[in-house]
Design a protein around this nucleic acid. Structure first.
Length: 225
DNA sequence: TGCCAGGCCGGGT
DNA sequence: ACCCGGCATGGC
């Protein structure tokens, strides 16, 4: 007899509906980390444009990012929005990488299991979702990434409390799922795939059905609590 | 055409 | 300890 587990059942349903998402769309750990900062409250298609411009300018290295003028950097990442703020955040991240690890990205990733999260959180402009995205998608350690969609979908389904904090939500997933990088990777990406297509009202919408609708059809109705 | 996107910070109660 | 405005471009 198979254990019943809401989170694994929902995962199976999302995977069946949307298929593998193949995240993170980035070539190197540095590019992924930059993308994690640029995508804050921003559509990924805008981030793609910004990263393409950085790549075009040969800017995807710690050395070049450290040398480039902040105003120039801001102009390069303009399509990603909040470009002044994000240029400052990237500069801070890069400067920290330089002083802490000599600009060696692999050296930073090697600390992923020993304090990297807290160090990232101490940097201006890197909060829990950005830090965890770097841990999971760049360093490939099993840290579940929580975002606004995760809260919206699972609180709407009654699986988490309306006032659940980031850490509480992450704990809920990590305690109830196998501790696997590939699973956490795909699960977060699938939540985004669904989240893009449900009612946008925050934090929740009383008029909407409890389930999440995609392409006219409820996706998770059987899991409504 | 207005609303939203894979957040986070800082200042105000 | 919350709550809220600010940050900004591009797509539907």
């Amino acid at each position: 007899m198979k254990n019943s587990n809401l989170l694994t059942d929902v995962y199976d349903a999302l995977l069946a509906r949307f298929g593998p998402q193949n995240w993170w769309p980035g070539d190197t750990p540095l590019e992924i980390s930059i993308g994690a900062i640029l995508t804050q409250n921003t559509n990924w298609s805008n981030v793609e444009k910004a990263i393409a411009r950085l790549k075009q300018a040969g800017m995807l290295s710690i050395k070049r990012l450290r040398e480039v003028d902040e105003r120039t950097l801001a102009e390069l990442i303009r399509p990603s929005g909040y470009y002044n703020q994000k240029a400052r955040r990237l500069k801070g991240f890069v400067e920290w990488m330089w002083t802490e690890f000599g600009g060696d990205v692999d050296a930073m990733l090697a600390t992923a299991e020993s304090g990297l999260r807290d160090k990232l959180l101490s940097l201006k402009g890197i909060g829990p979702e950005t830090a965890d995205s770097i841990l999971l998608y760049a360093a490939e350690v099993p840290k579940f990434v929580v975002d606004a969609y995760t809260y919206r979908i699972f609180s709407r389904h009654g699986a988490i409390a309306d006032d659940a904090t980031y850490e509480e939500i992450a704990e809920f997933f990590e305690d109830n799922l196998p501790c696997e990088v590939a699973l956490y990777n795909e699960y977060h990406a699938l939540i985004v795939a669904l989240g893009k297509n449900i009612c946008k009202k925050k934090p929740k919408c009383d008029e909407c059905p409890l389930y999440s609708v995609f392409d006219g059809e409820p996706v998770l109705d059987e899991f409504a609590g």
